[in-house]
Computed example of a mutant assay.
Amino acid sequence: MNFEQYKDVWVFIECFQGQPKDVGFELLGQGRKLADGLNQKLCAVVIGNNIKNAVKEANYYGADKIYVVQGEEYSNYSSDAYGNAFLKLCEKYNPNTILIGATIKGRELGSKIAVSLRTGLTADCTALSVETDTKNVVWERPAFGGNLYAQILCSDTRPQMGTVRPGAFKKPEKNVNNNAQIIEENIRMDTNDILTKVVDFIKSTEESGIKLEEAEYIVSGGRGMKNAENFKILNELADVLGGTVGASRAAVDAGWMPQSKQVGQTGKTVTPKIYIACGISGAVQHLAGMSSSDTIIAINKDPSAPIFEVADYGLVGDIFEIIPEIIKEIRSAKNIYE
């Protein structure tokens, strides 16, 4: 089929109360690779109110063009308002490819756009590439419980669309000298046509501290932690590192940690500088969420645990003997340099 009228790779920059989420910038890095492979422009789409900072950051993270839609009706996300604005942009400019973060809002928005444009949508992608001959985007995602990876093509329709897990990729380097073209579109919507209204925001107690997907240091516990009480020692290690605590699905299913702390295929994808896996066997579902970490340290009493196959450093032994020694050494080192 002839898709010559469809141009450019679009990345949705999700914002909350005007401030951009990291996932949009992570996708600009991947979007650049796709755009270069397709020989097209990389475009950011920013919808909201008081979004000057989001537009500036989208420029710094490498967008060639930035489509901006502003108004009071976009102060809080709604699929009615955001979907209407995004669809009008698509109808006017005909994007070739659209990348959206696989967040709660992104999954809803992506579905609405795909259905309206009668095109396909690949959900929860963890890898992206371009077929050299066909110029189709190859969307890769875990399938069958994470036991294999599926590669999905959207060969018959445009735009090609996919949602991508937050944390699946690292943000590109900032370039403050980038000079993106800013395209402001006056797309308004009567607030009476917005069926869902935001009454208030109530912050969860689980949101305090460093967010799992934004942490540079993560200490995760699995079945080997034995009970919820033992996670205190992981919290102590995370505190001295300046990081946060995660968990495997087994620990979450046992009720030892909240689901918001789960790392893996059915949890969050993270890419910290250091990931310490404590008492985690290393099932493929867990590896799908943390294998891209810069450095992986595994602590497990079972020398044949699969986690050691992906670990950069492995410690075979009792978690409850090893971790206190690590905490002691870190504190000692901090005292020397303070």
Rank of each mutant, 00 (worst) to 15 (best):
Glu214Arg: 00
Thr205Tyr: 03
Thr271Asn: 08
Gln19Ile: 10
Lys52Ala: 05
Val46Ser: 06
Val130Gln: 07
Val23Leu: 07
Gly18Asp: 08
Tyr275Gly: 02
Asp22His: 13
Lys171Glu: 03
Val176Glu: 12
Ala58Phe: 00
Tyr217His: 14
Ala143Thr: 13
Lys65Met: 08
Gly71Lys: 09
Glu4Ala: 10
Leu34His: 08
Gln5Lys: 14
Val198His: 06
Met257Ile: 11
His286Tyr: 08
Lys203Cys: 05
Leu27Lys: 12
Gln285Tyr: 05
Phe231Tyr: 04
Tyr6Asp: 02
Asp80Ala: 06
Gln262Pro: 08
Lys171Pro: 00
Glu213Trp: 00
Leu42Lys: 03
Glu329Arg: 15
Lys273Met: 07
Leu234His: 07
Asn177Ile: 07
Val198Met: 09
Met161Ser: 05
Pro324Tyr: 07
Lys105Arg: 15
Tyr82Phe: 15
Gly264Met: 02
Asp239Gly: 07
Gly110Trp: 04
Gly317His: 07
Gln40Ala: 08
Thr295Ser: 14
Tyr82His: 13
Leu128Met: 10
Ala215Ile: 01
Pro306Glu: 02
Gln30Pro: 00
Asn2Val: 01
Arg331Asp: 04
Leu38Arg: 11
Asp36Pro: 01
Ala215Asp: 01
Asp156His: 13
Asn96Asp: 14
Val198Trp: 00
Arg249Gly: 07
Ile187Trp: 10
Tyr275Pro: 04
Ala143His: 12
Ala150Thr: 14
Asn177Val: 09
His286Thr: 02
Leu99Ser: 10
Glu140Lys: 15
Tyr82Pro: 11
Asp64Met: 13
Cys90Trp: 14
Leu195Pro: 02
Gly62Arg: 12
Met257Gln: 15
Pro272Gly: 06
Asp318Cys: 10
Arg107Pro: 03
Ala85Asn: 13
Leu148Val: 12
Leu117Gln: 14
Met290Ser: 02
Glu206Trp: 00
Lys232Phe: 03
Tyr275Lys: 04
Asn136Thr: 03
Asp239Leu: 10
Ala63Cys: 10
Ala215Ser: 13
Asp318Ala: 11
Gly110Phe: 05
Gln5Ser: 13
Gly48Asn: 06
Lys135Met: 01
Ala81Tyr: 09
Asp64Asn: 15
Val270Cys: 01
Gly162Gln: 05
Gln285Asp: 08
Thr163Ser: 09
Asp253Thr: 12
Trp256Phe: 13
Ile47Ser: 02
